[in-house]
Design a protein around this nucleic acid. Structure first.
Length: 559
RNA sequence: GCGCCCGUAGCUCAGCUGGAUAGAGCAACGGACUUCUAAUCCGUAGGUCACAGGUUCGACUCCUGUCGGGCGCACCA
């Protein structure tokens, strides 16, 4: 619909340009939808934008544009008006709107999919938690937003890969190995204190006893301490990764790649080139952006816009996480991804500027590098914040919350706010099965349509688009207009990497449907009217279903 | 001290990248079930868009400053 208006207005501007001999009159016509009904279905501010170039008052220019609209306007509009400072308001013929339903019907599950991405390869990396424990609430927002972004980008024509970067190298993993080994030794009566920042959760002891039942006491007798710790580390990683996968699968989050830092970045597993770590160090060195200072190797980030320089190789010779991360991101581009999206917790925002500096120093286009920062989740119960202290061991795992509220509610609640604002997750609201709960509100609209179709089948009425012109009630025209907006919402959501826009749209669409339901009876004595209305609500159900699917939320036939 | 995010109705939040009289849900109050699901709908009330300047035809939106809240600023990850 918007396309149609953009087309005719552009044509009008073009012919004005010709008539007045103004070559560069071309303008990007932006079609808006007024909030107020009395301003029409669509409006255009083009007259105000080009008034200066033409040298006339905006309202005069608006008249000129209307005069120059192509003839086909008569088929599209009931009325065209000039209003305010120079807006042109279009009142579209109901029939023109209603006929657009055919597109929804024919595309079905593909309605809403677009080609904005043009097959561009994009890597969406998210969660990427250390496999040293269970996922907590903080991870869950990251997981759901990342997964949904992947779905939305995919629907927008990007060749999308969702990746979990396994941080299985470095200090945290060593601590896990040590912690498990200490618990293991405890099982043989050798009691020792865990290190200061060791892992204290019960699962550590559980893993230790699993090792005991498999290996007996051989870790004490047959292996060195280093070998045993390494064994514990790898064993624990395997178990915890499975737990993480299970938790994620429970909220419908799936990855295409599980990419190991240790294996892919730290190890030299393909011949003589050395590890990615060595390669990137050499590459940076060849660009002259490194410097030795106080026994360590530094990246001169200040030369590339960051506020300070950063260590890449510590004075003990070991690499920092930052070096590994540069290597990892370089590796993403080497694997052929044209752009990357990273979903990070907001506490990592300091990392953005230095990584950008590093990419810049390598001559990479930083516009291909996108970061979505996720603000914190506060878990609320009975109006009070649920304390989540890892140190006190009282943090709430994602699993606990999913068991309490279910996957659909979990996902929707974490998606319905803009990622960049803090989120209060209200457990009491989440558990309510009522109008207060927006998830059920949307699902209920979907289920209601299912119910109408069951009724229609009983009555022997079948949907049809033969008499769509019968659909003239304001409520049904509004519903159709809302439905037609869906592709644009998906595209906008992809463009701005903001899944909450889809969630909002679905709430509005559901509201529009509920209004319609209460106003117009679908299955009724008038068979032709019933057939047309069934066709309409079929389309509504398609869009609701496609939208819920994008969010990874189920669409129930009955509730 | 420096940097990032946030500040919109009593509460939780949208606001289409600068448009017309500021939007929704919850909470409050009043209505609608012999009807395809009342997990719904209709109505009432609720605002100095933190504050002060600036940019222009036009600012919740962009710029500067101030105040408040969150988070970063390691030879940790």
């Amino acid at each position: 619909m918007k396309d149609d208006i953009q087309k005719v207005v552009s044509q009008a501007v073009e012919s004005i340009g010709k008539n007045l001999d103004l070559q560069d009159l071309s303008v990007n016509v932006e079609v808006g939808m007024p909030k107020k009904k009395e301003f029409g279905d669509f409006s255009v501010n083009t007259a105000m934008v080009i008034a200066n170039k033409i040298g006339k008052k905006p309202r005069e220019v608006a008249e000129l544009i209307i005069e120059n609209l192509p003839k086909e306007k008569d088929d599209l509009f009931n009325k065209i008006e000039i209003a305010g400072a120079g807006f042109i308001n279009f009142y579209v013929k109901e029939e023109a709107i209603v006929n657009k339903l055919a597109e929804i019907e024919s595309k079905g599950a593909d309605y809403g999919r677009g080609n904005m991405g043009q097959g561009e390869k994009v890597l969406v990396e998210f969660v990427s938690a250390n496999p040293t424990g269970f996922l907590h609430m903080g991870h869950s927002r990251n997981a759901v937003v990342g997964d949904t972004l992947g779905r939305i980008l995919d629907a927008s024509g990007y060749d999308t890969v969702k990746e979990f970067y396994i941080n299985d190298a470095g200090r945290q993993m060593n601590l896990l190995g040590e912690s498990i080994f200490i618990r293991y030794k405890e099982l043989f009566g050798d009691k020792q204190e865990l290190p200061e920042d060791g892992y204290k959760g019960e699962y550590v002891a559980d893993i230790a006893s699993q090792i005991k039942s498999e290996k007996g006491d051989s870790l004490l007798k047959d292996y060195s301490k280093e070998e045993s710790t390494e064994y514990c580390k790898e064993y624990g990683k395997g178990i915890l990764l499975e737990e993480i996968k299970k938790d994620l699968a429970d909220i419908n989050v799936h990855f295409d790649e599980w990419y190991s830092e240790k294996y892919n970045i730290h190890s030299s597993n393909n011949g003589s080139d050395g590890s990615k770590l060595d390669q990137i160090k050499e590459l940076l060195n060849s660009k002259g952006v490194l410097e030795e200072r106080e026994g360590a190797l530094w990246f001169k980030a200040t030369e590339f816009g960051d506020t300070q320089d950063w260590v890449l190789i510590k004075s003990d010779g070991s690499p920092t996480y930052f070096l590994a991360d540069i290597a990892y991101h370089f590796d993403k581009y080497e694997r052929g991804f044209e752009s990357v999206v990273n979903v990070w917790g907001s506490d990592h925002h300091g990392h953005v500027s230095r990584l950008k500096a590093a990419l810049r120093s390598l001559g990479l286009d930083e516009s291909r590098f996108n970061v979505v920062l996720i603000q914190f989740v506060r878990l609320m119960r009975e109006g009070k914040e649920v304390a989540m202290s890892k140190r006190a061991g009282s943090y709430v795992t994602m699993r606990d919350v999913v068991e309490e509220v279910g996957s659909d509610v979990m996902r929707f609640f974490l998606l319905m706010r803009s990622s960049e604002s803090h989120l209060d997750f209200d457990l009491d609201l989440a558990k309510k099965e009522s109008s207060e709960n927006p998830v059920y509100y949307i699902q209920y609209a979907y289920a209601r349509i299912g119910s109408i179709f069951r009724k229609a089948q009983e009555e022997g009425v079948v949907q049809s688009n033969e008499n769509l012109a019968l659909l003239r009630a304001p409520e049904e025209i509004d519903l159709v207009k809302k439905l037609l907006l869906f592709p644009e919402v998906v595209e906008d959501s992809a463009k701005s990497l903001a899944p909450h826009k889809v969630a909002y749209y679905l709430q509005e669409l559901a509201a529009q449907f509920h209004v319609y339901y209460n106003k117009c009876r679908v299955v009724d004595d008038d068979k032709q009217m019933s057939a047309a209305r069934l066709y309409l609500i079929q389309c509504a159900q398609t869009v609701l279903g496609n939208g819920l699917n994008l969010l990874g939320v189920s669409a129930p036939e009955r509730m």
